[in-house]
């Protein structure tokens, strides 16, 4: 016979495969649960997703500064070379009349990481304050952040392609600089932050508040 005391809070969902498990009756503070089907770690309650996401976001925000100020690559033509940051590289493209390309680089490398940082901070604050407003829209924002983030890597790939292709000794040569490394770190850290952020919390708080209102009103 099933015991009568089971509620929705006793059911744990595996975030990877969606298998449902029953919360064990006794759980020590540092116990880990693993999904019986796929073997993935099961998140219990809030966990520390908010704290870890904050840490990753702060690290990404700090690295965003050198990523934009330090040169990403240097172009050497006939022995003389000049280092380029992301912005000056985009500016050269505008000067050469290739403004659609400059716009693409500008959006993918400067606007998208910044918007991503702001969006994740907005979502985190909403979760911490138990906001119940527009959960559908906030979920859409999260899905968009998760999807768009990887496209920022395009700048790193362009640098890789250029330094691989343009190696003609003294005639023309392109080298990578530290800015690329910082920039790639920003992309990786924000991608990790989007992964550690527990999107179910958007709905948990929204649902909890509506239930509370119903109870009181």
């Amino acid at each position: 016979m099933p015991d009568p005391g089971i509620s929705a809070a006793d059911i744990l969902v595996c975030r990877v495969c969606g298998a449902l498990s029953r919360r064990p009756l006794h759980l020590e503070p540092h116990d880990h649960l693993y999904c019986q089907r796929c073997g993935g770690r099961i998140r219990i309650g809030r966990g520390n997703s908010i704290e870890v996401t904050w840490a990753l976001l702060i690290a990404a925000a700090i690295l965003y500064v050198p990523a934009n100020l330090l040169p990403v690559m240097s172009v050497y033509m006939l022995g003389s070379g000049q280092p380029d940051t992301i912005i000056s590289g985009a500016w050269h493209l505008v000067a050469a009349g290739q403004w659609p390309l400059a716009l693409l680089i500008f959006v993918a490398s400067i606007v998208v990481p910044l918007l991503k940082l702001l969006a994740l901070i907005f979502l985190l604050l909403g979760m911490q304050h138990g906001s119940s407003r527009h959960p559908r829209e906030r979920m859409k924002l999260y899905k968009m952040t998760e999807y768009i983030g990887r496209w920022s890597m395009v700048d790193v790939f362009v640098v890789a392609i250029l330094i691989a292709l343009v190696q003609f000794g003294n005639l023309a040569r392109i080298e990578a600089n530290t800015g690329t490394f910082c920039f790639a770190s920003v992309v990786v850290l924000t991608m990790l932050a989007a992964h550690t952020l527990d999107e179910h919390l958007i709905w948990d708080t929204a649902y909890r508040q509506r239930r509370d209102r119903k109870k009181h009103g």
């Binding site: 099933p2 089971i6 059911i11 969902v13 975030r15 969606g18 298998a19 449902l20 498990s21 029953r22 064990p24 649960l33 999904c35 019986q36 089907r37 959960p135 979920m139 899905k143 999107e199 179910h200 958007i202 709905w203 948990d204």
Partner: peptide
Amino acid sequence: LSGNFIGIMTEQLVACEECGR
């Protein structure tokens, strides 16, 4: 659910991947 410490009940219930309902 019966018997197991962690039992899989996916045959009866499905959780939404995005919001957990």
